[in-house]
């Protein structure tokens, strides 16, 4: 079994997919940076940024539903920002008595909380569009183009290449455990043994996964040697930068820059 479902790339024939990966990579980072720098409570800017990312989602053919569903998974972290509603002092919005304590929510606190949640939601959508519309080798090229050291890029490439193989191994280990140690099928039923015993089994599985990885890397090394590996990590030269790519990059950066200036000028 091969775990292609892990790969978030979705093939579509869209202008977003066809765009140079370097342009997409830089624009995604610029979009996230813009969202991060946008002042608290600059609602029109947030709405414009949301309009931009929604249009890109529609243009890419991925569909808004797909991106929103995936972005919802990453949003549980928002709980971490919830306390600011009550800890920032300002105009009282409502009070919430909990036992002996009284929590006072402020308008300023709520504005900050909503801003953080929006920034996070916008950023994760941009990252999802990048990952879903760009093949990993192209992403790797983009990273090399922005100056990631070659050894690190080679690590990313190797990890990606063997990720699916090792996830397969891990799933085989889990299937073997499920078959042998009596996993309960009803909800709430305990699987066998004490917690320490279960932890030891899981640990043994992790150990054997690492051992298999060590042994596999020996075989990979020998295979690389037989193909002329001499310790130097080599990669294909980057493809030339087209005029269309340059234009989209400049237009995208200029637009995000304008949005940012607009936001800081009026709400900063």
């Amino acid at each position: 079994m091969h775990l292609h479902f892990l790969d978030p790339y979705q093939h579509r024939a869209s202008p977003v997919h066809a765009l140079d990966a370097r342009v997409k990579f830089v624009l995604t980072l610029a979009f996230i940076l813009t969202a991060s720098l946008t002042p608290v409570a600059a609602w029109p800017v947030y709405i414009l940024l949301l309009a931009v990312i929604l249009s890109v989602e529609i243009l890419s053919g991925l569909g808004v539903g797909y991106v929103l569903k995936r972005s919802a998974l990453a949003l549980s972290f928002v709980l971490a920002a919830l306390p600011v509603i009550f800890t920032i002092q300002g105009q009282t919005l409502f009070t919430l008595p909990i036992g002996a304590w009284t929590l006072t929510a402020s308008v300023e606190g709520l504005e900050r909380f909503v801003s953080v949640a929006l920034k996070s939601w916008l950023s994760v959508q941009a990252a999802i569009v990048l990952a879903a519309s760009t093949r990993f080798p192209e992403l790797l090229q983009a990273m090399r183009a922005v100056g990631i050291p070659r050894l690190l890029a080679a690590m990313f490439g190797l990890m990606w290449r063997y990720l699916f193989v090792l996830v397969d191994e891990a799933m085989r280990l889990m299937r073997a455990r499920a078959a042998r140690s009596g996993r309960g099928t009803e909800a709430g039923s305990r699987s066998g043994g004490s917690v320490a015993w279960r932890a030891r089994v899981a640990g043994g599985m992790a150990g054997s996964l690492f051992l298999r990885a060590f042994e596999r890397s020996d075989r990979i090394y020998v295979a690389m040697l037989s193909r002329g590996y001499d310790g130097e990590v080599r990669a294909l030269p980057l493809p030339p930068f087209t005029g269309a790519g340059r234009l989209s990059l400049a237009a995208g950066l200029a637009f995000l820059g304008l949005l940012l200036i607009f936001g800081i000028a009026f709400w900063g």
């Binding site: 690590m155 290449r161 279960r198 996964l209 990885a213 890397s217 310790g231």
Partner: peptide, 23 residues
């Protein structure tokens, strides 16, 4: 030079190892 494939594959193993949980 042996280290490059080892590090890459171990990174994949750590990623895959995060799936090995116990209740």
């Amino acid at each position: 030079e042996r280290q490059a494939p080892l590090m890459g594959v171990l990174a994949a193993a750590i990623f895959a190892g995060q799936m090995l949980n116990f209740t």
